[in-house]
Design a protein around this nucleic acid. Sequence first.
RNA 1: GUCUCGUUAGCUCAGCUGGUAGAGCACGUCACUUUUAAUGAUGUGGCCGAUGGUUCGAAUCCAUCACGGGACACCA
Length: 503
Amino acid sequence: MAFENKFIQQRIEKAELLRKEGINPYSNDSQRNTTIEKYLNVNSDIEEKEDKRDENRHYTVSGRIKLFRIMGKASFIKIEDESGMLQIYVARDNLPEGFYNNIFKKNIEVGDIVEVSGYPFVTGKGELSLHANNVKLLTKAIAPLPEKFHGVTDKEIRYRKRYLDLIMNSEVRKTFQIRSRVISLTRRFFEDKGFLEVETPMMHPIAGGANAKPFVTHHNALGIDRYLRIAPELYLKRLIVGGFEAVFEINRNFRNEGMDATHNPEFTSIEFYWAYKTYKDLIEITKEYFQYLFEHLNLPVLLPYGDLEVNFENFQEIPLIKSLSTIGGVPEEIVHDKEKIIEFLSSQNITIKPGMNLGQLQGELFDEFVEEKLIDPTFITEYPVEISPLARRNDENPAITERFELFIAGREIANAFSELNDPLDQYERFKGQVDAKEAGDDEAHEMDEDFIDALSYGMAPTAGQGIGIDRLVMLLTNEHSIRDVLLFPAMKPLHSEEKNLEE
RNA sequence: GUCUCGUUAGCUCAGCUGGUAGAGCACGUCACUUUUAAUGAUGUGGCCGAUGGUUCGAAUCCAUCACGGGACACCA
């Protein structure tokens, strides 16, 4: 199976021929002394020189051959390293005797990684290039690259063979560089504010902190099942109980649910918890955080996203109930009446699960009529207590919680609240979740007695927030599928892989 | 999970209402010392996603399956 493709065979033969000529097709003896980007910058003055060259400068660059144009006794190739693309002029008479005809033209080709030494010059057509006096093969590629003009566009190939996508589509590299910057800036932002980065377990005895179905794994030595975490929330709050006053964790969560443009089974979030603060402080720090990101990523405050334009100077704040009528167009008089909401939903041909309580129905109205209309950043506040089992109640109105979710471009980006720190209330909320679970809601929380125990020792008043990093990166890079901001998105195994697993 | 579109050469794609599998790029050979997706000549290359069925005959029609895209459902 492996290497049976005739193009691969052909290239393996070339590698063999090179070995016979005493050339190691997998040499690690690299003498590179500059990157392509630096080369192009440092030599940008060559254009001004009279003969448009400087034979006294000498550079060695390395990279993958992306284009190969042989023109008889001279050739142009383009090589690419992580920093950029450079044209190399290779002439027979500037290379060691016989190398050009026997090695270079015959056995080096597109896809190979080479090292080239020479001096800078500008071609007749005005392109700053490198005039080669030595070409050395570093790595022979035995698989041919996709077509040079169209590259690889098939999404399945791009996701399954991300390395090939990265070789062929340089803008993809850029997306992931931005992703890395976002994470690094996020870390710096919170560290600068005195937050401590922590790591909490990925394998939980009880999957808590969110409403979601977990993945199950097994610990052989203990003979017990563990759940891959669906959220770090309950552990981070234990740390607040322990006396840390500002903590954050940037890490993966796992949810055993469907996959689509905005859901991957493993995804990255930041959660941070801040003692002696409320959700109102979180609204302020969130605005500051976005300002910080935009500044350091040089993004325009009027950020284009697909057909939309998001105004990041127009943060809005509106209570959920109010948004139902003012934004969603739901008749104001029905939003506090369970029966009327059910009636309204069915008149709009929306089917709902039986037995939903008022808070859940209000959440349903929000999802159906409001969410997608929230384009500019909008903090939706005052969530019903029934759908906020870990959030603190409002002192004036115990039916709602001190919570917000932030929506941008019709999508949820963050979820935050003043944390519930009354252990008795938390116990009752968990019991409500357990009842819901027994009634068939398989995403409801389980009772976490250890967490109740922790709260019993007293958790300072605290505000906590989670931000979905993948969706945030999508927004900032104008990508519309989560797979385009994940280097290796989850894919179903191909036939052969599946078979191997079963064997 | 449902609907829908797709799967043909290494890549990007044609292939009509069934009748001997096509192009461009890449690759081989030849020519060419300043090209820009270089150019010109010439040649090689296919289990037409898999399995069944209909038919004298299937890349093409039908069914099932696999994988992928999109939408919906689910989902903070």
